[in-house]
């Protein structure tokens, strides 16, 4: 009898996990294996893939160094700027705002998601483009200010687009922060600033780490914002990939770049996690 229930339970578990597992298998693992194979192959004369075993594609990686550089700098910097902007907003929402209006304010944070990022980024194109802010500046005598197609424009787009994703996890961790801990800190003689750095910030670190990891990882694959706001000047790896796969149809080289990106991300994540665990120590245990 126990055997039977066990088997049954296992079957139920399997049935529940199966769709997700199949999904991951078909759309993540298999394509990744295909990509690995492609990366060591050659471009067919008419474009696409031709079987071979060569490291030639990896040898050509330096020709896309700019894309790597832009991605590796602007993704973390973008995430950090996002964090600096998001934290005060999340803090205000979770701690300072009137609880009666809190839910409304929090929903306002996600309202931008009702419109596609494409449309919103187009709007920025106009705002930053020659008929937008530069036009206004020229009226007061500042001629030829270029905003669009600069790293700054891409960074602005990144912060604008990803801010809600950073605010949410930080808001959640601040929201469940026990107010009496803040009172206890004040009671023990801590000024508001000391209370913030001694209690509030450490206890919201899980939210901060989640937000930074989420935004950084999503940014590594970003394509739209560099395309629209960076023009041909500031492109990310995502843009290089689109180029290679859809324009020049060089699948093996595209695959080599993609594989390298995945490898770099995995290494960064491992190092980051090791550092995070060392800093946080067993703190994590207490926070769950």
């Amino acid at each position: 009898m126990p055997m039977a229930t066990n088997t049954k339970r296992n079957l139920v578990t399997a049935a529940l996990v199966a769709p997700a597992a199949a999904w991951l298998m078909i759309f993540l693992v298999l394509p990744f294996i295909a990509m690995l194979v492609f990366a060591f192959g050659e471009r067919a004369p008419e474009g696409g893939y031709q079987a071979a075993f060569t490291f030639a594609q990896f040898a050509r990686l330096p020709t896309r160094a700019a894309a790597f550089w832009n991605t590796m700098v602007l993704a973390p910097v973008g995430a950090l700027v996002c964090l600096l902007v998001a934290y005060p907003v999340a803090y205000y929402l979770a701690v300072k705002s009137d609880p009666r209006y809190r839910l409304i304010l929090v929903s306002l944070v996600v309202v931008p998601f009702w419109t596609s990022l494409l449309v919103r980024t187009y709007a920025w194109m106009y705002i930053l483009g020659s008929r937008g802010i530069p036009n206004l500046l020229s009226m007061i005598g500042l001629e030829d200010v270029r905003l669009l197609n600069t790293p700054g424009a891409v960074l602005l787009g990144i912060v604008y687009g990803y801010l809600p994703l950073m605010i949410m996890p930080i808001y959640v961790s601040l929201e469940k922060l026990d107010r009496r801990l803040l009172e206890a800190s004040a009671d023990l003689g801590a000024r508001p600033v000391s209370t913030f750095f001694g209690v509030t910030l450490p206890l919201s670190l899980p939210g901060v780490m989640t937000g930074v990891a989420l935004v950084t990882i999503l940014l590594l694959g970003e394509y739209l914002i560099p395309q629209l706001l960076g023009g041909g000047k500031v492109f990310f790896i995502g843009n290089a990939l689109v180029d290679l796969f859809l324009q020049s149809r060089n699948w093996p080289f595209g695959s080599a770049i993609a594989v390298t990106l995945v490898a770099v991300v995995v290494v960064i994540l491992m190092v980051a996690m090791r550092i995070a665990f060392r800093v946080a120590g067993t703190r994590q245990v207490d926070l769950v």
Binding site: L181, E183, A184, A186, D187, L188, L203
Partner: peptide, 20 residues
């Protein structure tokens, strides 16, 4: 006068110890 300036200390009802 703010709490942090007062020469009193409190044992809170559910202790309010810092978990971190």
């Amino acid at each position: 006068v703010a709490a942090y300036r007062r020469p009193v200390n409190m044992v809170f009802q559910q202790y309010a110890l810092f978990p971190h």
